[in-house]
């Protein structure tokens, strides 16, 4: 259970970014302007604004949240309350690759924890921790909406990696170490598996699509 330890609670943390760094480019500013136009009131733009900032700065320390609030012209407290509500906004610095391993509902019974523990052993860190080289953070995730291809994980709020096996994890980790992000996997509609070879989209980068396992190969 996550708890906030009173003694360690710091209301005035040292900023990570200097005021020189805390600026949006004109492109980013016009993107923000675009977000404001998407909603009848500026507050609506806060989530998009925080996403943009997180992509830019990697995480959302307070000074970045304040920057977004100021840019959108909304109360900082409001933005901060929102940022801390959602799990995908990183309030702490994380590794380059955040591996969100789903251990929820379906994944837990399809080996989600095995994958998590395998990763923990492999990277020498526990869920919630970041590797010393700053490359990996492992997290235990709630259902990511891909239960049909359990166990699965998500990389840094982005790419899904489906149907994990230990060897798939091995190659994923070594690819990521080389800076190679796996390609988008189009998950098959099993009803099309025989007739249309999976009927997968052909406009995504990867051609190594996931194939519905026809038999129980993956289960011992």
């Amino acid at each position: 259970m996550a708890t906030n330890n009173g003694a360690q609670f710091n209301r005035h943390p040292e900023p990570t970014f200097s005021s020189d760094q805390l600026v949006f480019t004109s492109d980013e500013k016009s993107a923000m302007q675009g977000y404001l136009e998407m909603y009848p009131e500026p507050e609506g733009a806060i989530m998009r604004g925080l996403w943009l900032a997180q992509e830019k700065f990697g995480f959302l320390p307070p000074e970045v949240i304040r920057l977004v609030a100021d840019e959108l012209g909304i109360p900082y407290a409001r933005a901060y309350g929102v940022a801390t509500f959602y799990t995908q906004y990183f309030k702490q610095k994380k590794g380059t690759y955040v591996l969100d391993v789903c251990t929820c509902f379906s994944c837990q019974v399809c080996g989600g924890y095995d994958i998590l523990h395998y990763l923990e052993d492999k990277l020498g860190i526990k869920a919630g921790e970041t590797s010393e080289d700053g490359l990996f953070t492992i997290q235990e995730a709630e259902c990511l909406g891909a239960c049909g291809s359990a166990p699965m994980l998500q990389i840094t709020n982005g790419r899904y990696v489906h149907n994990l096996t230990e060897s798939k994890v091995d190659s994923l980790v070594s690819d990521l170490k080389d800076g190679k992000m796996p390609a988008f996997e189009s998950v098959t509609l099993p009803q099309d598996e025989t007739e249309m070879g999976g009927n997968r989209r052909d406009d995504v980068e990867s051609l190594e699509y996931y194939k519905t396992p026809p038999v129980a190969e993956t289960f011992e």
């Binding site: 307070p62 900082y76 801390t84």
Partner: peptide
Amino acid sequence: TAEVSGSHQLTIIERGVNNFPMTPPGV
């Protein structure tokens, strides 16, 4: 602070059972 005084200096932070009111850092 949101509706009466309008100062917006307080917000509930975190989620679920960890919720509590706080000023945003630095305020």
